[in-house]
Design a protein around this nucleic acid. Sequence first.
DNA 1: CAAGATTGATAGATCAATCTTA
DNA 2: TAAGATTGATCTATCAATCTTG
Lengths: 167, 167
Amino acid sequence: MTQWLNEQEHRAWRALLQMTAQLDARINRDLQEHGGLSKADYDVLVPLSEAPGGRLRQYEIGQALSWEQSRLSHHLARMQKRGLVEREECGTDRRGAFLLLTEAGRCAIDRAAPSHVTSVRELVFEGLTEQQVQTLADVSSQVLARLAATDGRPRRPRRTAPHEESA
Amino acid sequence: MTQWLNEQEHRAWRALLQMTAQLDARINRDLQEHGGLSKADYDVLVPLSEAPGGRLRQYEIGQALSWEQSRLSHHLARMQKRGLVEREECGTDRRGAFLLLTEAGRCAIDRAAPSHVTSVRELVFEGLTEQQVQTLADVSSQVLARLAATDGRPRRPRRTAPHEESA
DNA sequence: CAAGATTGATAGATCAATCTTA
DNA sequence: TAAGATTGATCTATCAATCTTG
């Protein structure tokens, strides 16, 4: 028999889900309006702009963002077409590829960052106590640890077609 | 000039983003494997299964989930094709439509809910103190309030094509 | 074989435009 | 006109399969 969430946990869970969904939507909209970037674009550009020479191996970005390879590959192809990044062959490991920040990409992230950070500060952190911020960090780290601990858990093989099962 | 996040805020923000992204992915995977539902399907089925007669106006679900009409409409069309819900005309307001839970839909949510709730409890709430849970709820509510307060904010008209701007 | 990465198909999300009725 | 809802186009995410090289 299932142990359900208690009243307090249920409220907290609903509020957290609502908050993250609406916050994500707002952040995406703000970034789009202020610089023509999606949150995903921004997430790619940040580590790239912080890397020496604006150059990173693709898999490093993938790991940093917890993205699948395929998602990363498709997304970078779109960003490349828009001129935000470039790809370059890797000399030491010829399977791999470097990702390069272009001038336009540097421009875009520099222009988007200030209003993004301001928005996050005003929406999220401005009203919080240090205690609350610390709890946010602690709880998130705890949950991340549990996710990691149960990651390679027994995955039953999928017996149905992708994106549509009925039983 | 921009006021950036301090060290603690930055850590908390990164952790929160990572946590919600990975948690969402895990929840989606679990629901898919245990019952062939996506989180979006689940979110639609929950209020519907709690409504008297398994019948709700579409816009009520849309408001509860903060979904756009178009997203809801597309998603319900897919769920209807899979036999999880049905649509019915509304007598008193002939613009509108009722959404009905089918037997298969009831079945799916009843089967998915226990393992979903167990998963959420184990991943999120089991290690948290009452204090921490309360802080989660408080912070989420606060942020939601600020999102609502700045919702109708000045939106500059979009001067570029959808999904691709470069300046 | 495993790791880094790409591709094609399909499901899902977003925007703009439209339709009908209050 | 505005509210409830639908549609088509386009962008994004996910899965499975593939390719190349360590």
